[in-house]
Design a protein around this nucleic acid. Structure first.
Lengths: 263, 263
DNA sequence: ACTGAAACGAGAGCACTGCTCTTGACTGCC
DNA sequence: GGCAGTCAAGAGCAGTGCTCTCGTTTCAGT
């Protein structure tokens, strides 16, 4: 689409991408704090002032990287879930969808709906594992979106719309199993939190009991506490090679949420 | 102690403290990224070069603030636990320790031992609440120790010795209830994680079953996932006033660990 | 009490940063 | 073909972390 453009527009788009690529490269080497507009321009063989025609400020460049990171992480997680979903369907016999289509995210969400929770636990594992893997492969980009926010930086609306994709993908994993959650009733939810949960449920998961949603919230925050601790070095003295700690905790949280223990 | 010192030593100590105070003030205003050696020196009416006689580099100044933050947070949590412990003992009748001694941390740890888990759940609440309160009162200092690590900064040994104080305080809360944990057996712990847990247990909590320790690890990471999400704005669309979400989740994790539901 | 050494504060200076403004060259539409 | 809009480049500003030097002050050993 839009292949008919002026040479100037195409050049601008390409250069914008090159700037982001180079900035992402520098980000991976030294972190966000050391990302320098001048260094990016230098590496690209252009004057630093020219770069300001593409990104009005350093923060805008960072914002672009943040948005890309949100997209990449959500894409990684949803495609991992889709793969797990396809595998589960294949082994379950109803293999109308070959496992050779791992790609698209939207397909994964649709498939999760259709199969009505077949292999929800496998999808849960895939989701959590994919988030952790992406975080370990792109630690600085993870830090950009889930670490300390840059000072004085207020996320624009577009950013938080991208940020919400990942929790929605997690809800997509849990929703199909909504009818078969094996969790104890639990304690009554206090009023304010109850209305907050009701608002979420109304928008995104009407069939999910409120207590289950509250448990997903706990698991959701636990996942990122765990990953952040691993990446930021807070597991040094305890669970330093964190693979088994992570896998075991993911399983514990699946139990906690009440996901059926089947394959 | 050590009141007999030269005037130079006393001046150095005092100026060191003033530098840290001013740096902490600037940290609270704009965050670690904006902390400037020159600005600190300017505010103190001295040349920036003079400040380098007290802290060899900006990172060393940050390290000092990090260590102070670890100490302050652990102090805050342990004293809150001690207060809760005292209250529980007072209401239980065995009021040999008046509730008017909230101060010292060591006293709190000792008291937690003696009472053999009386009101462990109240202590759990106090611990989690104190950590959250401190984080909300000192967001930038919290970000300093639990947010994105500064690039190229490798924590010196002294720092991680301070960092371990807080999880040990949490173990002090759980340990007295070790015999009365009401949690299901759970799944078998994989080998590597098992040895990691055994190493922790051997050092700090021999009487705690391994499964219980694994559950504490989950709760421990969940707590910081929750606090980081709140402070860093990731609860914006969901549980934005996070008070009830936090309190409810803390209670859920107490259930998860198996703490008795008594007062 | 005197002296040499260590510590100290101040200032200049280096290399770097984000960002702005001006200048001149180029592109693409009318 | 002209002309408005876009572009890259350079100079420059105010700020940064940090180093070096230069006098001064303070402490400790004799």
């Amino acid at each position: 689409m839009a292949a008919i453009r002026t040479a100037r527009e195409r050049a601008r788009e390409e250069l914008t991408r090159e700037i982001k690529d180079e900035a992402r490269r520098q980000l991976g080497v030294e972190g966000a704090q050391q990302l320098s507009v001048r260094a990016v321009a230098r590496e690209l063989g252009m004057a630093s002032s020219a770069l300001y025609r593409y990104f009005p400020s350093r923060d805008d460049l960072l914002t672009a990287l943040i948005m890309d990171a949100y997209i990449a992480l959500a894409e990684s997680a949803t495609s991992a879930v889709a793969q797990a979903q396809a595998r589960a369907q294949a082994t379950a016999g109803g293999a109308d969808l070959g496992q050779a289509s791992p790609g698209r995210a939207a397909a994964g969400r649709a498939a999760a709906h259709e199969a009505a929770g077949l292999g929800a636990r496998a999808c849960w594992r895939a989701f959590c594992g994919a988030v952790r893997d992406w975080a370990r492969e792109h630690p600085h980009e993870y830090a950009l979106i889930y670490g300390t926010p840059v000072p004085g930086y207020h996320a624009p609306q577009e950013t938080i719309e991208l940020a919400v994709r990942l929790p929605l993908a997690l809800l997509d994993v849990v929703r199909p199993a909504a009818g078969r959650l094996e969790a104890p009733a639990g304690r009554p939810v206090p009023p304010v939190y109850s209305t907050q949960l009701a608002s979420i449920a109304a928008q995104y998961a009407p069939e999910l009991p409120q207590a289950a949603l509250a448990r997903v919230m706990v698991a959701w925050t636990q996942l990122f506490g765990m990953i952040s601790f691993e990446l930021f070095g807070h597991l040094a003295g305890s669970a330093d090679p964190a693979d088994e700690f992570f896998a075991y905790s993911v399983e514990q949280m699946a139990d906690f949420v009440g996901l059926p223990t089947g394959a």
